[in-house]
Design a protein around this nucleic acid. Structure first.
Lengths: 208, 208
DNA sequence: ACGCACGCTAAGCGCTCGCTCAGGCTGCGA
DNA sequence: TCGCAGCCTGAGCGAGCGCTTAGCGTGCGT
C-alpha cells in the first residue's frame, strides 16, 4: 500500500509506454523488488507474485530476468536524459539552467527513488552488451551537465577551474540522493532539489 | 595481479587486525568478491577459491557468509570514523579541518574503493541486528562532519543556511566516489581529494 | 616416540534458483 | 456454434546455492 502510493505519486505516468498491461505490471513489480532487495537477491517468483501471476507468466513477456532489468534501465536512463536535456535547452542564463537541471534531476531521484535506485546502482548486474548500451546513455547525461557548465564559464557567470571534475561532482551529488533519500523522512523531493541547486551554484562560483 | 596491487597499494595495512592468517586471507578475498559482484552474487565457493582454500574452510573461521560481510562492514566503518575523527579533532580553523576531513575521506573512498564499495553499498544485505549496529556508526560519522560545519558557522567562517542538509550533501559527495572512481582512470585519489575539498569549501561559503 | 588438537578437504545434503513445457481457460471472427 | 489464437498456470527439470560432516595430515608438547 505504501509502495503503491510511492510509485503512483512519485513517478509521473510511470512506464506508460510498456504494453501490454500484464508486461507493465510485471515490470513495475520488478522495479519495486530490485529497489528493495537488489537484482541478484530478487527471485522471479517474487516478481511474478507481486504482479499477481505465476512464475511462468514472466517468461511469456520477457525472455530472461536480465531482460527485465535491461528494459528498466534503458527507459529510466532515457527519462533522466530527457529531464537534463530539457533543462539544458532552456532559455535562461547558464545559472538558471544549471539550477533547473539540478533541482529537477534531484527531484527525479528523490521522488522516483524506487526507479532511480535500480537505474543507478544495478548497472553492473547487466551483461556486457546491455551495459555498453547504458554507458553510452550515461555519457550523454554527463555531456548535458558539462555543456551548461561550459556555457557558464564562457559567459563569465561561473568560476570553475576543473570543468570535467566539477561536472562529475555535480552528477555524483544528484545520483547519491537515490541512496539516502527516505520517503518518510523530513524532507520533500522539492526541498532537497532546491537545497542542492543552491549548493551546486556555490560549487561553480555563480554569483546568483 | 592487478587486484593484489590495488589492495596492497590502495589500503594502508589492510585488515592487519584480523587473525589468524587464514581468516584474513578469506576476508580479503570476500572484500574483493563483494566489491566486484555484490554480496548476493558472490558464492562461498568463489571466496574460498580466491583465498586458495576449499569451500568448507570458510566455515572454520566464520559462522556464515553474512558474518564475513558484518566483520568487513564494522571494521570499514570504524576506519572511516577514525579518519573523520582525526580531522575533526585537528588544531586548525574549521576551514582547514573541513578541507582535511573531506580530502582524507575522499582519498579513502578512492584508494580503497574495493573496501569502500562494500562498506557503503552492502548495508541492506545485513540482517536487522548487524544493520542497526552499523547505522549507529554512521550516525557518528555524520556527527563528526556536522560538528566541523557548526564550528565554522559559529566562528563566522562559513555561511550555511541548512547545516543538516549541507552535512548530508558533503558526506553524499564523498561516499559516491566509491561508485564511480576507477583505479585505471585519469585521476589519482589525491587529486580527487583536493578537488572535492575545494568544492566543499565553496559549498559552505568559506572565504578561503 | 607418540598422541592429540587443529586446520583443512572431499563429498554431499537439502533447498531454492532461473527457466521450461504441456495443457487449459477465455474471447473473438466466421 | 465452434475453432483457434493468445495468455496464463501447475508441475517440475537441472543446476548451483549455503552449509555440514567424516575423516585426513601435520606439528607440537611431553
Amino acid at each position: 500500500m505504501s509502495t503503491a502510493e510511492e510509485t503512483a505519486g512519485g513517478e509521473m505516468p510511470p512506464w506508460a509506454e510498456v504494453t501490454p498491461d500484464a508486461a507493465r505490471r510485471l515490470l513495475v513489480a520488478a522495479v519495486e523488488a530490485f529497489a528493495e532487495r537488489g537484482y541478484h537477491a530478487t527471485t522471479t517468483r517474487d516478481i511474478a507474485g507481486r504482479a499477481g501471476m505465476s512464475p511462468a507468466a514472466l517468461y511469456i513477456h520477457y525472455k530472461t530476468k536480465e531482460e527485465l532489468l535491461h528494459r528498466i534501465s534503458r527507459i529510466g536512463h532515457e527519462k533522466a536524459l530527457e529531464i537534463l536535456r530539457t533543462a539544458a535547452r532552456g532559455e535562461g542564463s547558464a545559472t538558471e539552467r544549471l539550477a533547473d537541471a539540478v533541482s529537477s534531476f534531484v527531484r527525479w531521484h528523490a521522488g522516483g527513488r524506487t526507479t532511480a535506485r535500480v537505474v543507478q546502482y544495478e548497472l553492473d548486474s547487466l551483461g556486457p552488451a546491455a551495459r555498453a548500451e547504458i554507458i553510452a546513455l550515461r555519457r550523454q547525461v554527463d555531456a548535458q551537465v558539462r555543456g551548461i557548465i561550459e556555457d557558464g564559464v564562457a559567459s563569465g557567470e561561473f568560476d570553475v577551474p576543473d570543468v570535467r571534475g566539477t561536472t562529475l561532482a555535480v552528477l555524483s551529488l544528484c545520483i547519491d540522493v537515490a541512496r539516502w533519500f527516505n520517503v518518510n523522512g523530513p524532507r520533500t523531493p522539492d526541498e532537497v532539489g532546491a537545497l542542492y541547486a543552491d549548493l551546486v551554484l556555490r560549487m561553480v562560483g555563480a554569483v546568483k
